[in-house]
Design a binder for these strands. Structure first.
Length: 803
DNA sequence: GTAGGGTTAACT
DNA sequence: AGTTAACCCTAC
C-alpha cells in the first residue's frame, strides 16, 4: 500500500502528461523509467498512454520521413485493436531492431499504426486525474467537496475559458501552444512532430497570447485547472494542461535562451556550448527516435534540450561524453530529433557533421534507420538502450549495443559510487544512514540504464529473462543476485571484483552486498552504542557505590583536618569568625559543588579529581591559614575540558608508572597549594565531595602547572600525591585515587634501605636522597626519600635495635 | 631535605 | 576495634 501510495502520484502525473502533446514522448518515457513501480497493474493505464504517445511519435516521424512513399495497400499489417499499446510498441521495436536497424522507413509503412492509434486513443480510459477532477466537479462524492474549493475547481465554471494573461497561467500557455505546435497540426502538415527550437519557440514567442506567460507571480486561483480539465475532456490529445503549460513556460525560457544562443553563435556555438558543458545532448530517447525515426519532435524540457536540439551536435566527442554522462542527465532525453521539416529545412537534428556518410538531416529524416554503427552510437540513451537491449536480444550480432550503452551508465554509476565512497571516507558512519537509499537509487538507475525494457515497461523484456549480463549485455555464465526482488545478473568478470557470496554460497550483487553491509554496519553500530551505554550505566553505578564510600572518607578526614586546623596553633592567628567563615565556606563549596558537579565533570566516566580530599583540605587549609584571597572565590572557572584532559594525562602517567607524570601531578597539586586563587577556582569546579569520587575535583590545570614550574624546581621534595599502583588495574574510567596506593616494602628494599642507612649514617646532608640513589635499582619506582625515612622509622619502631 | 606528627587503608 | 605500614602534611 505504501508503495502504491508513493507511486500513484507519479502514475497519475505520467498519465495526465501523456494526454498532452506538448509533453514529448521521450519525456514520458523518462518519467516512466523513473517510476519503476509503474510496471505493475497500477501503472498499466499510464503505460498504455505513454506507449500510445510513443506510437504517435513513431507515426509522426514516419509520415515525415516517408513522404511520397506508399506501401502496397494490401500489404498493410494491422494491429489487433485489443492488443496493448505496450505490446505493439514492443513488436515494432522488435521488428526494427531485428532488422538491425536497416529497415527502411518505407517498410514501416506496412504497419497500419494509425488505425491502431485511433482506436486506442478512443478507447483508452480517461486518466485518473481527470476522473478525479470530474468527480470533484460533479460534487457527487461528499469527500471531494472539500477538495473542490482547495483545488480551485469551485470557480471552474467561471474560469473555464478564461485565459489569464497576467501571471503565466498555465492554461494560457497551453492554449497558446495549442494552436501552434500541436501534434495534430504537425500531422496535418505531414511534417514530423519534432518541435524544433524554431517552431516551438516561434509558437512560444509569437503565437502565444503574450509574454506574460512567464510566471512572475502565481495566483493559485488562477491555476484554472478546471479549464484544463475541460479541454482535456474535449480533446485528450490537446495540449491543455496546466502542468504542460507550466512546462512550456519553462520551455519557453529555455528556448529563448537557446535561441539567443543560436542567434549569437549559431550552431557551432551551441555545439561548443554543449560540448563544453558536457551536455548529453542527443540523449537516449533521441537516439531511439533516430533509430526508428520515432522521435516526435519534442519541446525542450531542460537544459539539455537547448543544446540537444542544435544541429551538428552529434559527433563522436559528444557521443563520447554521452557515454560518460550521468544517467540523470541522459534521462533528460535531450531529444535529438531527426528533424526535418517538410521543406527539408534542417532543424534540430544533431548530426555528426564530421561523418562522411552523407547523412544529412533529410536523410536522417527519411531513412534514418541508420547504419548499424551509427545506430550503435546513437542508440545510447535510456530508451535507446532499452530498445537496444531488446534489439540486441533479437539480433545475434549484438553489434548494435555492444560498446555503446552498456558502458554508459555503469560508468556513471561507478563514478557515482566512487564519489560516494570518497564521501563516506570523509564522513562519519552516519553518512551510511542515507547511503542505503542512495544505493537503492543507484541500483534502480543502473537497472534502468541497463535493462530499461523491464523498467520502462514499454517492453517487459528483462535482462534476467534474456540471460544477458546487465553490465555488458552479453550472454554467458552469469551470476544471479540472490537477493529477493533483485533482478541483477552479471558476469563475474563484469563485477570488477570478487563476487560476494554469503555463507550459503548465494551470490549478491554489489548493490545488494553493499546495502547489506550497510545494514550490518548500522546494526553493529547500534549494538556498540547500546553496549557502551550499558557500560556507562554499569560504571556509573559502580562509581556511585564507591563514591559513597569515598565520599565519607573524603569528608571525614577533611573535617578532621579542619578541626585539627581549627585547633591548630595557626588558629590563634584567626578569630572565631574566621573559622566560622571557613566552615561556611566549606558548606558553600559543597553546596555549590552539588549544583555544579555536573558542569565541572560532565563526563561521569572521567575521574575529575584524584586527590580531591587533599586538595580540598589544602584549600581549606590555605583559607584558614590566612590566604584572604581564598575568600574571594573567583568567578572564573577552569575549563572542565582542560581539567579532564589533564586528569587523563595524569592517569596515563600513572598507568605508565612514569615518574615524570607523578612529578607533574605533584607539581600541579603543589601549585594549587601555592596558589589559593587557583585552588578556589578549582574548588568551584569540583564536584561535591559528598557526592562521588568519580566526580572528584580535578587536581590541577595546565595553567597552574605551568605557572608553578619554577617553584617546583625549587621544591624538589617528592612528597607528592602520586597515583598509587592498584591491586587491580582499572581501565577506563579510572577510579579516582585519593592517596597513593600503598606499596609494601619488600624485604630486598628493606635490606638495601638498612644497608644504605648504615652506609650513609654519617651523612646528614641529603642522606635519604643518597640512600635512595644508592638503592635506586632496588627501590620500587615511586619511592621517595620520605618513604625511605618513614620506612626507616617504622623499622626502628618495630625493632629499635636495628636502628 | 629532613623530622616528626598525623592520616589512611588494609589487615587481624 | 585495634594494629600497622604506607602515605601525608607541616615546620624547619
Amino acid at each position: 500500500m505504501a508503495s502504491s501510495a508513493s507511486t500513484l502520484p507519479w502514475i497519475w502525473v505520467i498519465e495526465a502528461l501523456a494526454g498532452f502533446k506538448q509533453v514529448d514522448a521521450s519525456i514520458l518515457i523518462d518519467l516512466v523509467k523513473r517510476t519503476p513501480e509503474i510496471s505493475d497493474d497500477l501503472g498499466k493505464n499510464a503505460r498504455e498512454k505513454v506507449s500510445l504517445r510513443f506510437l504517435e511519435s513513431f507515426i509522426a516521424q514516419r509520415i515525415g520521413s516517408t513522404k511520397g512513399l506508399s506501401p502496397a495497400p494490401d500489404s498493410k499489417i494491422e494491429f489487433d485493436p485489443s492488443e496493448n499499446c505496450e505490446d505493439v510498441v514492443r513488436n515494432i521495436l522488435h521488428e526494427i531492431t531485428a532488422s538491425n536497424l536497416r529497415m527502411d522507413k518505407a517498410e514501416t509503412l506496412k504497419w497500419d499504426v494509425e488505425a491502431f492509434i485511433m482506436h486506442k486513443t478512443a478507447s483508452l480510459p480517461q486518466c485518473a486525474l481527470q476522473q478525479l477532477k470530474d468527480a470533484i466537479l460533479e460534487g457527487i462524492h461528499p469527500l471531494l467537496s472539500s477538495l473542490k474549493e482547495r483545488s480551485g475547481l469551485s470557480i471552474s465554471d467561471q474560469s473555464r475559458n478564461r485565459v489569464p494573461a497576467d501571471d503565466g497561467d498555465l492554461n494560457a500557455v497551453a492554449r497558446g501552444l495549442d494552436g501552434s505546435c500541436s501534434y495534430d497540426r504537425t500531422l496535418a502538415t505531414g511534417g514530423n512532430l519534432t518541435s524544433s527550437p524554431e517552431n516551438l519557440v516561434g509558437s512560444l514567442r509569437g503565437d502565444l497570447p503574450n509574454r506574460d506567460l512567464l510566471p512572475s507571480k502565481r495566483d493559485r486561483s488562477d491555476l484554472d485547472t478546471e479549464n484544463l480539465a475541460a479541454r482535456s475532456r474535449e480533446d485528450q490529445n490537446s495540449m491543455d494542461n496546466g502542468c504542460v503549460s507550466h512546462l512550456h513556460n519553462i520551455k519557453k525560457l529555455k528556448h529563448e535562451a537557446a535561441l539567443t544562443n543560436q542567434a549569437v553563435g549559431g550552431n557551432k556555438m551551441s555545439e561548443d556550448l554543449c560540448t563544453r558543458n558536457g551536455q548529453q545532448e542527443g540523449s537516449d530517447l533521441a537516439k531511439l527516435s533516430e533509430m526508428g525515426s520515432l522521435e516526435e519532435g519534442r519541446s525542450t524540457e531542460n537544459d539539455h534540450d537547448i543544446t540537444s536540439e542544435r544541429p551538428g551536435l552529434r559527433n563522436d566527442a559528444v557521443d563520447a561524453e554521452l557515454q560518460n554522462n550521468h544517467p540523470e542527465s541522459s534521462c533528460n532525453n535531450t531529444t535529438v530529433p531527426p528533424d526535418t521539416f517538410e521543406d527539408g529545412t534542417q532543424q534540430d537534428l544533431p548530426v555528426n557533421e564530421d561523418k562522411d556518410d552523407g547523412n544529412n538531416i533529410a536523410e536522417m529524416g527519411t531513412s534514418d534507420i541508420t547504419p548499424p554503427d551509427e545506430a550503435n552510437q546513437n542508440i545510447c540513451g535510456d530508451e535507446a538502450r532499452d530498445k537496444c537491449g531488446k534489439s540486441k536480444l533479437n539480433t545475434s550480432n549484438g553489434a548494435l549495443l555492444d560498446g555503446s550503452y552498456p558502458n554508459n551508465f555503469p560508468d556513471e554509476t561507478k563514478d557515482d559510487m566512487q564519489q560516494n565512497r570518497g564521501h563516506e571516507m570523509s564522513s562519519d558512519s552516519d553518512g551510511y544512514q542515507n547511503e542505503k537509499s542512495d544505493v537503492a537509487l543507484k541500483k534502480r538507475t543502473f537497472l534502468s540504464s541497463q535493462c530499461t525494457f523491464s523498467e520502462d515497461s514499454l517492453a517487459t523484456v528483462d535482462c534476467t529473462e534474456l540471460n544477458l549480463c546487465m553490465k555488458c549485455n552479453k550472454s554467458g555464465q552469469l551470476l544471479v543476485c540472490s537477493a529477493s526482488s533483485c533482478p541483477l545478473v552479471v558476469h563475474q568478470s563484469c563485477l570488477g571484483s570478487e563476487p560476494n557470496f554469503d555463507d550459503s554460497g548465494n551470490f549478491y550483487c554489489p548493490f545488494c552486498a553493499y546495502s547489506h553491509a550497510i545494514s550490518t554496519y548500522l546494526e553493529v553500530k547500534k549494538k556498540a552504542s547500546l553496549a557502551r551505554k550499558d557500560l556507562a550505566t554499569f560504571i556509573g553505578l559502580e562509581n556511585g557505590h564507591q563514591g559513597n564510600k569515598f565520599s565519607k572518607k573524603i569528608l571525614r578526614p577533611e573535617q578532621n583536618q579542619l578541626d585539627d586546623n581549627v585547633n591548630d596553633n595557626n588558629r590563634t592567628k584567626y578569630n572565631g569568625n574566621h573559622v566560622k567563615d571557613v566552615s561556611q565556606y566549606r558548606e558553600n563549596v559543597e553546596d555549590k559543588q552539588q549544583v555544579e558537579h555536573s558542569l565541572s565533570c560532565g563526563n561521569d566516566n572521567l575521574p575529575c579529581q584524584e586527590e580531591g580530599a587533599t586538595v580540598n583540605d589544602r584549600t581549606l587549609r590555605d583559607l584558614m591559614e590566612g590566604n584572604k584571597e581564598g575568600e574571594k572565590i573567583g568567578p572564573e572557572c577552569l575549563s572542565a575540558g582542560t581539567l579532564i584532559g589533564h586528569q587523563i594525562e595524569a592517569q596515563a602517567g600513572c598507568n605508565l608508572d612514569d615518574d615524570n607524570s607523578f612529578s607533574r601531578e605533584t607539581e600541579s597539586v603543589r601549585a594549587i597549594r601555592r596558589h589559593p586563587e587557583n585552588v578556589i577556582q578549582q574548588e568551584v569546579l569540583q564536584p561535591p565531595i559528598t557526592d562521588s569520587t568519580q566526580q572528584g575535583a580535578c587536581p590541577s590545570n595546565i595553567d597552574v602547572e605551568e605557572s608553578s614550574e619554577e617553584e617546583n624546581d625549587k621544591r624538589t621534595s617528592n612528597y607528592s600525591i602520586r597515583h598509587r599502583r592498584r591491586e587491580k588495574q582499572y581501565t577506563y574510567p579510572a577510579i579516582p585515587q585519593l592517596r597513593r596506593r600503598k606499596v609494601p616494602w619488600t624485604s630486598v628494599e628493606e635490606e638495601i634501605l638498612k644497608e644504605g642507612v648504615k652506609r650513609f649514617s654519617s651523612v646528614h646532608d641529603r642522606k635519604w636522597k643518597r640512600i635512595l640513589e644508592f638503592g635506586s635499582n632496588v627501590f620500587q619506582k615511586g619511592r621517595t626519600t620520605i618513604d625511605l625515612k618513614d620506612k626507616w622509622r617504622n623499622i626502628c619502631r618495630g625493632s629499635p635495635k636495628s636502628k
